[in-house]
Simulated assay, not measured.
Amino acid sequence: MQDDLLTQELQQRLRFSKIIKPANAAVLIAITNESDPKVLLTRRSVYLNNHAGEVSFPGGKRDPSDTSNIVVALREAWEETALNPFDVQLLGDLPMERAKSGMTVKPVVGLIPADINLIAQPSEIDRIFFVSLRKLMESKPIPYEVRLAHQSLYFPSLRVENEIVWGLTARILISLFQYGLNYHKSWPFLLNSPAFKSKIFNKITDH
Rank of each mutant, 00 (worst) to 15 (best):
S45W: 05
R44Q: 05
I31W: 00
S175F: 06
E138I: 08
I164H: 04
N49P: 08
F196I: 15
V109H: 00
N24C: 10
R62A: 10
Q89M: 07
E80F: 01
S45P: 06
K38D: 09
F57N: 01
K106L: 09
R62L: 04
T169V: 04
L41C: 03
S101G: 07
D115H: 12
P22H: 11
W78L: 15
P122S: 08
A114I: 11
Q178K: 11
V105E: 06
D93C: 07
P58A: 03
D4M: 11
E9Y: 09
L181A: 05
Q121E: 12
R134W: 09
W187Q: 14
L190M: 03
A170E: 10
R98K: 11
E54M: 06
L181F: 08
L190S: 06
V88M: 03
T169E: 03
W187C: 14
P85N: 07
K61N: 13
K140E: 12
I29L: 10
I29E: 00
P37G: 04
I70G: 00
S152Y: 07
I19V: 13
L74T: 05
P113Q: 09
A170D: 14
L173A: 07
S175R: 08
F129P: 02
I200K: 04
R43C: 11
L190W: 07
N49R: 14
R13K: 12
H51M: 10
R43S: 12
F86M: 15
P141S: 09
V131Y: 03
E161P: 13
D93M: 04
L133D: 03
T42H: 11
F86I: 14
T81I: 03
L74R: 03
Q178F: 06
I19E: 15
P113I: 10
D3V: 12
R15P: 04
Y179W: 06
P122H: 07
N202T: 12
L48R: 02
L136S: 08
V55S: 02
V71Q: 13
S139P: 12
I31E: 00
G180P: 01
N33C: 07
N33P: 05
P107A: 01
I29S: 01
W78H: 14
L190K: 09
P107F: 00
V72Y: 02
S101P: 03
G167Q: 01
L91K: 00
G102E: 11
L10V: 06
T81G: 03
S139M: 09
S139E: 12
K197S: 12
S186M: 15
R75G: 10
M96C: 06
K100E: 15
G180H: 02
L74V: 04
E9Q: 15
E54G: 04
Y144H: 13
V72S: 01
G59P: 02
H150Q: 14
F129S: 08
V146D: 09
W166G: 03
T67V: 14
R134V: 13
L94A: 00
K135H: 12
S68D: 03
A26V: 05
H184T: 07
L94V: 00
V88Q: 00
A52M: 07
T81C: 05
R43N: 09
E138Y: 08
S132C: 06
E161M: 11
